[in-house]
């Protein structure tokens, strides 16, 4: 049966269930044996509940996989030590954004161990000495068809990084990188809630309330609708496709 007929049938079944409850009350006491119609309804309810929970509770976690970052990097420690963000995340002169720093940025200070933190030891032995780039898992990596200009948003839009990335600057640990098994998209991009409803991406770390003057509880979801909505809100214009696509 094609899905359309199934839909009619289920609609019919729903009726039956709803109809059945109100009817049962006021119509004349039904002759024995007429309770038989309860069998399909019970079967229906059983099927409904089982698959409903299957869809909302059991399957979603399987859809997403989790990976740990190669190194448990602490932003807080580095911001305190280095003092600013531009050391690692800066604008190149052609306006492009450097994004995640390369190994040579880390190697500038971490040529030899500066503390006894095992993570730093791991950094030096596994990456700096062999000169292998750190395979960071980027939470906000957009799909290949998306062009995102940090210059436009940070320089022109004067937006604060936390708006999209959440208060990652104050984090002491890196949260696990969750991604969709099928599409390999980070969960930050396509929405934490399986229904795509935007949800607080940062809540998983159960971050204590920090004192920064930007009161941002969570990272905004970075899906197409959010960008479009923000553009409509901020620039009041319906953007052409090529503004964000390439």
């Amino acid at each position: 049966m094609s899905t359309t007929e199934e839909k009619e049938q289920t609609v019919a079944e729903n009726e039956q269930e709803k109809g059945g409850d109100e009817q049962a009350a006021e119509v004349a006491p039904v002759k024995p044996g007429t309770w038989r119609f309860l069998i399909p309804i019970a079967a229906f309810a059983l099927g409904f509940m089982s698959h409903f929970s299957l869809g909302w509770v059991i399957l979603p976690p399987i859809l997403y996989a989790e990976k740990q970052q190669p190194i448990d990097f602490s932003h807080k420690l580095h911001v305190d030590e280095v003092g600013d963000c531009e050391g690692c995340h800066y604008f190149r002169e052609d306006g492009s954004f450097s994004g995640i720093p390369e190994l040579e940025n880390c190697a500038e200070c971490h040529e030899e161990a500066m503390g006894e933190d095992p993570e730093e030891a791991k950094l030096i032995t596994e990456y700096i000495e062999p000169g292998k780039e750190i395979p960071w898992l980027i939470y906000a990596r957009q799909p290949q068809c998306v062009f995102f200009s940090h210059a436009a948003h940070v320089k022109m839009g004067e937006m604060d990084c936390a708006i999209c990335h959440g208060p990652i600057g104050d984090s002491d640990h890196v949260r696990p990188y969750q991604y969709n098994r099928l599409t390999k998209y980070s969960r930050d991009i396509w929405g934490w809630n399986i229904a795509g409803l935007s949800k607080n991406g940062w809540a998983y770390l159960k971050q204590a309330d920090n004192s920064g003057e930007i009161k941002i509880e969570h990272a905004a979801r970075m899906k197409m609708d959010d960008c479009a909505e923000c553009h409509m809100e901020k620039r009041g214009v319906h953007e052409a496709c090529f503004v964000c696509h390439k």
Binding site: D94, G95, S149, A151, A152, K155, K246
Partner: peptide, 19 residues
Amino acid sequence: CSFCYHRYQRAKNKAYAEG
């Protein structure tokens, strides 16, 4: 052909960087 639109995006990036 997109009139090399990615070059327009790049030029805008540079312009934004220069304010």
